[in-house]
Design a protein around this nucleic acid. Structure first.
Length: 299
DNA sequence: GTGTGGA
DNA sequence: TCCACACAACGCTCA
DNA sequence: TGAGCG
């Protein structure tokens, strides 16, 4: 059985403004594989496919078709709402990654948990999702406020650009808690953020009810089956941006998510390495963290 | 992006 | 043989 | 039950 992704239509234009081709996307994933695979390994994958490039709205795909090659790993999960089994792709190696990319999947969206422990996420994620009236400096302020709260709890968080207009802050959970606990923790964090930044943040999910210049702090991404763009995933956005892990010292006004692209990220990785490693670490002690928050330090 | 079915 | 066409999500939340 | 949302 040969493990070899066949690449079709490499000359097809995916980013017309930049004249970036499908072949260049495939090359990006071939080179980024050592960095991105740890965050995709053994996770069910939601595919967002845009086989006609980023100007096309594309479609989501969860169920691997019957025609999936036998060397591609898949994993069946019951979809509660339909009662049907969904056979998810699982990408554990570079050839599988290239197979998925060749389907026109620009953006990789893995679950927050792995197939051997589906109910227990590896991390909590805070999704900072600005309106188009916010500046990226607003997004930075929200990320720094989350960082401040995490500092007060004595726990470490990891920040990345989403590659689009927002940022993601990950907190390692080490498969020690379930999705309900992850969600409750994220909701509490989001609540604290809106208390500290009431002018620019909201927990209101409905777009029509949100004030125009408010950032939605989305804690509901911490549910089974929910996905976000993976660290090091390309995004179907102008400039061919990449969701890029950051040092906290870089998270300051003036930073732009457009600075990190499939063309230039490798220079950065050569210098800084994988800043997201800790996300897969042993995970926080939830009780300890919550105690620190409710009992202010005495001195 | 691919598999199909009818012209 | 060619091409038009079908098909490729889920789950929560709120009204 | 259905529309909205990510």
């Amino acid at each position: 059985m040969k493990k070899k992704a066949e690449i079709t239509h490499p000359e097809k234009i995916y980013w017309p403004d930049e004249h970036i081709t499908k072949g260049e996307l495939i090359e990006y994933y071939r080179n980024i594989a050592p960095y991105i695979l740890p965050y995709m390994k053994n996770r069910p994958l939601s595919l967002r496919r845009q086989p006609n490039g980023i100007k096309d709205e594309g479609f989501f795909q969860k169920d691997a078709s019957d025609s999936v090659p036998e060397w591609i790993k898949t994993f069946e999960i019951l979809a509660e709402s339909t009662g049907k089994m969904v056979n998810y792709h699982v990408v554990n190696d570079v050839e599988s990654l290239l197979y998925i990319a060749n389907l026109g999947c620009i953006e990789m969206n893995p679950w927050n948990s792995t197939i051997n422990k589906l109910e227990n996420p590896d991390w909590v994620v805070m999704d900072i999702d600005p309106s188009d009236k916010n500046t990226f400096d607003d997004v930075i302020d929200v990320a720094l406020t989350i960082k401040q709260i995490l500092d007060e709890m004595g726990i470490e968080g990891f920040c990345k650009t989403s590659g689009a207009s927002g940022m993601h802050v990950y907190i390692p959970f080490g498969k020690k808690y379930d999705y309900d606990q992850a969600r409750d923790f994220a909701e509490m964090l989001a609540q604290l953020v809106t208390e500290r930044l009431p002018k620019i943040t909201t927990l209101e999910r409905s777009l029509s009810k949100r004030k125009k210049n408010q950032i939605y702090v989305d804690y509901l991404q911490n549910r089974i089956g929910q996905t976000l763009a993976c660290a090091y995933s390309a995004r179907p956005k102008p400039g061919a941006t990449v969701s890029t892990p950051l040092e906290w010292s870089e998270v300051q006004h003036g930073l732009s998510p457009k600075d990190f692209t499939i063309k230039n990220i490798f220079d950065r990785l050569d210098k800084k390495g994988d800043l997201f490693k800790g996300v897969l670490g042993k995970g926080i002690n939830l009780n300890k963290a919550l105690q620190k928050l409710s009992v202010p330090a005495q001195d």
